[in-house]
Amino acid sequence: MRRYPKGYGGERRDPEQVKRDGWREQGVLVIAEDDQRLTWPERELVKQLGSKLYGKRSGKDVCHG
């Protein structure tokens, strides 16, 4: 049986689990601007924060569904 260093080989973590772990362990929050779990005002706040911190987005046709 072959052993791989942590993070190499084996099973991949679900992207939502990676986001959850990032928040809980590092205080890093990853949010898609079109996340349907958020209300409209919450999505607008995410867009405003992203624009303030990183500038306007050039491609508005990105779907994260």
Rank of each mutant, 00 (worst) to 15 (best):
Y8S: 12
T39P: 00
Y4G: 01
Q48R: 13
I31H: 03
G7Q: 08
Y4P: 01
V18H: 07
Y8R: 10
R57C: 01
E16S: 13
E44N: 11
S51P: 00
R43L: 03
G50D: 08
Q17T: 08
V28K: 10
P41L: 05
L53V: 00
K6P: 09
L38A: 07
Y4M: 12
G22E: 07
P5D: 05
R24M: 10
E25V: 06
R20C: 04
R12H: 11
Y54V: 01
A32T: 07
E33A: 13
K6I: 11
E25C: 01
E11K: 15
L38V: 06
R2E: 12
R3E: 05
G59W: 02
L53R: 05
Y54A: 13
G22H: 08
E16V: 02
H64A: 11
G55I: 02
K19T: 04
C63L: 11
D61P: 00
T39L: 00
R43A: 09
I31Y: 03
L29G: 09
A32G: 04
L38C: 08
R13Q: 11
G10S: 13
Y54T: 03
H64F: 15
V18F: 14
G27C: 10
R12D: 15
D14K: 03
V28M: 07
D61Q: 14
P15Q: 02
G59I: 10
D21P: 00
K6T: 15
V28Y: 12
K19E: 11
Q48K: 12
G10C: 08
D35A: 12
R20M: 04
R3F: 01
G22D: 09
V28R: 11
Y8L: 13
R13W: 08
D21S: 03
